[in-house]
Design a protein around this nucleic acid. Structure first.
Lengths: 343, 343
DNA sequence: GTGAAAGCGCTAACAT
DNA sequence: ATGTTAGCGCTTTCAC
């Protein structure tokens, strides 16, 4: 059996409670005994048992991270390790641990969340996705458990704490960038329409189109899955239109990768024949051909902030709902072409 | 305060221990009381407190997953979410939860592992990387804590359980494939030389070269970081050699992505001027241009097996050290060219 | 400044 | 088949 607080107490000739106080660095312990106790701990190789501690204080110094359903190929998006890194850093600073759910289907995710919440496994939860009508979100809201969502919640917007980019504005900006460079036929390729982020980016795109008095062409809006097969047809259709787009706003760098591939298969060239701009600034967007013009959404910061907010909230349940908007920045690279001179 | 076992006991007119037995589905409880207790649990909305349970049984039904240092850009490799998915599935089946460490630097990782082990947070640990002289590995071996490594451990090979591909053989195979197609000038581009997987893949490559009586040209072996900047020079040097390679074996699909980019920058074409073959069969290797010939290492299975082994080991400490070799399969795509006709 | 004792919620002998 | 009791290792009043 491992060495406990009692063993330390005995060795240091104090009571267990004193050892406990030393651990929590209580101010009313004489420097002398503090030293003695610490020495004993070291000599015995003492390490506190978190379960016991958690039981006593009814908390767990852990935060739960909920990934989207793995049915989604989207899980292979490097977005996730990156945001995990952000969350991890914040968590580590405050000595929190990470509990994660790599849910199978939605039901399993729901179960896992329940286990986390009811089982006192975690002090709070970070939702790594935001989609329409999500039972997990409903549950979290109902149970009044501390949580924050990365992205904008579909419902309860004013009541839940979330950290997000201003995706509408970002999408407007990037679309305007295309417009400024002379593009008038701009398509939008989004991911799953269930995701709030897709909706927001579409909205921003549409706003920019409208604002520039360009026609609102429904044929220009397609939703590709991350999978090659899914997107293929969509993109082919786009380029068989009477007036094919000269530029595209794409909701995710990973989708761009696929699109780039299809563009070439169709015998076209990016950016010569068609420009593309997307979102996330994944590491790989720098090393595609051409490198992608993309909106850097600061994934790491998104994660770090989410963890920070959550921990605040977990510590003080009365912390009000907040919304943190992480700034974005357009990275200009070579996937976009200036076609003003052609007009 | 949450509802406890006592509340349920009272409501069902039984002792707490009976409730406990119902929870663990003990065979010697009458069907009648079982029903009564379950009804009471439902009515009260009872959920067991895992901390209390863990404290009592000295286990946690959780497994710790250690990611590599985030100093590494490698963390953005989709390899990680994918293997997490595999681990998650296995874990979920047996009702284990996942604790993860997204370590900052090596020291922080070490700390986190200590917390996991000594704090009784997890019943076992999965190491998601294997590198030379790793203090974490040393610690785990010394402390006799259940763990498994994904990849081949640098040391203690016979004593630790690990799940890996036969990377040497895989690398030999893929190199031979290149040789069979007429390539005689084959370079190797690896990731960090600290990683055992890099070493193994290099070894396999060298074996194939030697076996085919091709010259062992040291200039053909380079180690690129995942970063664009790092690899750039290496690749440039490769193609400024007197006899530039006609093919390359690359240790990771993600590196291939960067190499593909450089190849084009140098005004070359893949596979026309140079063939490439790599490892992992990440989802994105299908959607690059050209799609990559790559070794499918079955990442998901690697994870699932690792979790399975670990759980066995956690349940029975006497479980002997095992090595699980997950089969690989070469995916033939268009990044490799047959140049036999040219000779 | 420190100790004694109760209790966090659950499990596991040991009774009966 | 079920109840009683004693912990698991820690924190936290309440004393002194």
């Amino acid at each position: 059996m491992a060495v406990t607080i009692k063993d330390v107490a005995k060795k240091a000739n104090v009571a267990a409670s004193t050892v406990s106080r030393v651990i929590s660095d209580s101010p009313r312990i004489s420097l002398d005994t503090k030293k003695r106790v610490k020495k004993a701990m070291k000599e015995l190789g003492y390490h506190p048992n978190v379960n016991a501690r958690n039981l006593a204080v009814r908390s767990s110094q852990a935060i739960g991270v909920i990934m989207p359903s793995s049915a989604d190929k989207a899980l292979q998006n490097p977005f996730f390790p990156e945001i995990l890194r952000g969350i991890g850093t914040s968590a580590h600073e405050t000595d929190y641990s990470l509990y994660i759910s790599t849910g199978g289907n939605e039901e399993q995710i729901y179960e896992e969340v329940q286990r986390m919440v009811y089982g006192n496994r975690v002090d709070g939860i970070i939702l790594l996705y935001s989609k329409v009508s999500d039972s997990v979100l409903d549950f979290l809201v109902d149970s009044n458990f501390p949580f924050v969502v990365v992205g904008k919640p579909y419902e309860y917007e004013s009541r839940v704490t979330y950290v997000d980019n201003n995706n509408i504005s970002a999408s407007k900006d990037i679309t305007n960038h295309l417009i400024d460079l002379g593009h008038q036929h701009i398509a939008f390729i989004g991911g799953s329409t269930d995701l709030v982020v897709t909706v927001d980016r579409l909205t921003g795109y549409q706003a920019a189109i409208k604002n520039a008095n360009l026609p609102n062409n429904q044929d220009y809006i397609v939703h590709a899955e991350f999978l090659k097969s899914g997107g293929r047809k969509a993109v082919e259709r786009l380029f068989s239109l009477e007036m094919p787009p000269t530029a595209m706003v794409i909701a995710d760098d990973i989708i761009s990768l696929g699109v780039l591939n299809m563009i070439e298969e169709l015998g076209l060239d990016c950016p010569e024949d068609v420009s593309i701009a997307s979102f996330n600034n994944l590491y790989l967007s720098e090393i595609t051909r051409p490198p992608l013009t993309t909106v850097d959404i600061n994934i790491y910061t998104l994660g770090a902030q989410a963890a920070k907010c959550l921990i605040e909230k977990a510590k003080d349940k009365n912390e009000p709902a907040k919304r943190i908007i992480v700034p974005y920045e357009i990275k200009y690279r070579n996937s976009v072409r200036d076609i003003r001179s052609l007009q």
